[in-house]
Amino acid sequence: MKQVLIYILPILFSASVEAQVQKAVHLSPQKIGGGSLFKKNISFADFQTKKLRRSIGSFFSKRAIIPANLLKIEGVPLYHKEKRTSKDYFHFDLEQDGDFAAYVEVQAIMLQNETFRLFSKKDSSFFGKANTDLLLGSIQPSADTTTWWEIAAWNLNATKQEAQQGIIKQSDKEITFEKNTLLLRENGDQNSIDTLFSTLYMAYQFRYKGETIAAVAYKENDRLCWIKKGLDQSVQTAVAATISILRLRRNIYK
């Protein structure tokens, strides 16, 4: 019965949304170094992160004990409720060409609230609708310590069938980012023929004043980011800090 259900149930849960590949071949690609088990800090273009610290609480999660979860027949659950709180708090310094550029603080929280009932219609909470998946952060640039950039992002752990997106804001400046499939250049070396090649990547696309100004690969394997040349210094720092956040954050859906 268990195996039969595994095959049948997924057929009922699917949604259709229109897809669209975006083209951003004007951005110059940059390799991302570090971010490994032995070198946590990352570096890309002129930027590098330093003093990355994560709170101990980020490695644990809190889960509610729900007695009804014991209702099972031959391993098949009749009812299951998952209530769990996970978080990821971290901060780091961002340096540009060896000089301190910004201090970045991030708080990500995931409140999981999923309910499964075998013999009744699956409610929206089972699809992650009732989950709270939020990332909040602040970027304090060294150039102007009085004006901070604020970051808010949601659904970065992709538990909901909604866009994975966020916003970076400083008074009247507003940069948005969203996960998309983008056509991007593979190589930025002007002396190489590869600079004429464009490839599809799943990436977070950064938009400022209606224009794509940067992107960072979504997949861990694709260690690349793309930044438009000649950006305003303040915008460039905010984008570089957010790229670092997106690469350094942990997936906190358990």
């Binding site: 259900l5 595994i6 149930l9 997924p10 849960f13 499964f116 992709a158 979504y218 997936n251 859906y253």
Partner: peptide, 15 residues
């Protein structure tokens, strides 16, 4: 680790 969570995965986790 950066992967979308699907309904199939939720069901499999339950089972």
């Amino acid at each position: 680790k950066n992967s979308d969570i699907t309904s199939e995965e939720r069901i499999m986790k339950l089972f």
